[in-house]
């Protein structure tokens, strides 16, 4: 795992450098969603006997932690194409596994910052308190692990920054909107449901919702997320090894 600390510490130092900007930019989207959909649009809506806000917030945690974890690809692109610091890493005696793990943990860190911000905003603005237990954080952790790994993999595979925007627009954004974040997936057309049901984000959103409403979940979703984490991590390592000219 040589290279983990160098990679993770570098990202933490960069994060520290822009900490307040990061807090602001991480807060604005959830705040808007909570105000516009949770309070504005969803004021009189209840789903499964809960207020829409209580439905929305766990979904937002799932969606935002996915987005923020995946967004490490932006930092990696800057390091690779603009600063070329990535070459300093490539020519050093580190292992790809250690490098990927360092980047993934920086993604997880960002995801947790985002999660805590959402829960705080929901508490202050929406006046709701969800039940948060260790399993809630474990699932958020795995969610971030998967998408940070995919963030690394996409950053290693693309050739230009424009490709990156394409991937985000065609994969991440649709998932954000359709993956059980904003509405129950049962409302979608029948033929889409099998596909949507097995998206990692759907699994995460539903599990977080059940946990935060005080229900227990079985171990199946955790098991699936674990397997997806391992697969995503392996893919990321493979793409790092291949990123040579």
């Amino acid at each position: 795992m040589r290279g983990f600390w160098a990679t993770y510490l570098r990202e933490l130092l960069l994060l520290k450098e822009r900490f307040f900007r990061v807090l602001l930019s991480f807060s604005i989207n959830p705040l808007l969603f909570i105000l516009a959909f949770g309070l504005g649009l969803g004021k009189d809506i209840t789903i499964s006997g809960r207020s829409y806000l209580e439905f929305l917030v766990p979904g937002l945690v799932a969606g935002s932690s996915m987005l923020q974890a995946f967004a490490i690809n932006v930092e990696i692109n800057v390091a690779r194409f603009y600063l070329k610091v990535f070459e300093e890493f490539q020519s050093s005696p580190i292992s790809p596994a250690g490098y990927v793990l360092g980047e993934v943990f920086s993604g997880i860190t960002r995801a947790f910052i985002s999660t805590l911000l959402i829960l705080t905003i929901a508490h202050i603005v929406g006046d709701i308190d969800l039940k948060i237990d260790p399993l809630f954080f474990l699932i958020t952790f795995l969610n971030a692990f998967i998408f940070a790994s995919l963030g690394v993999a996409s950053a290693m595979t693309i050739k230009t920054h424009a490709d990156q925007t394409l991937i985000t627009n065609f994969i991440i954004t649709p998932m954000m909107f359709l993956g059980g974040t904003f509405f129950p997936i049962e409302n979608l057309p029948e033929f889409l449901q099998p596909l949507i049901k097995f998206l990692p984000l759907t699994i995460v959103a539903q599990s977080l919702r059940e946990l935060s409403w005080g229900y227990t979940i079985n171990y199946e979703p955790i098991f699936i997320l674990l397997i997806l984490s391992v697969i995503a991590y392996m893919i990321a390592i493979y793409t790092v090894k291949r990123a040579k000219d």
Binding site: R10, L14, E17, L83, K84, V85, E87, E88
Partner: peptide, 10 residues
């Protein structure tokens, strides 16, 4: 390297 590849923000 020929091109300066330092972390400018650090």
């Amino acid at each position: 390297p020929q091109h300066i590849n330092l972390d400018m923000e650090l």
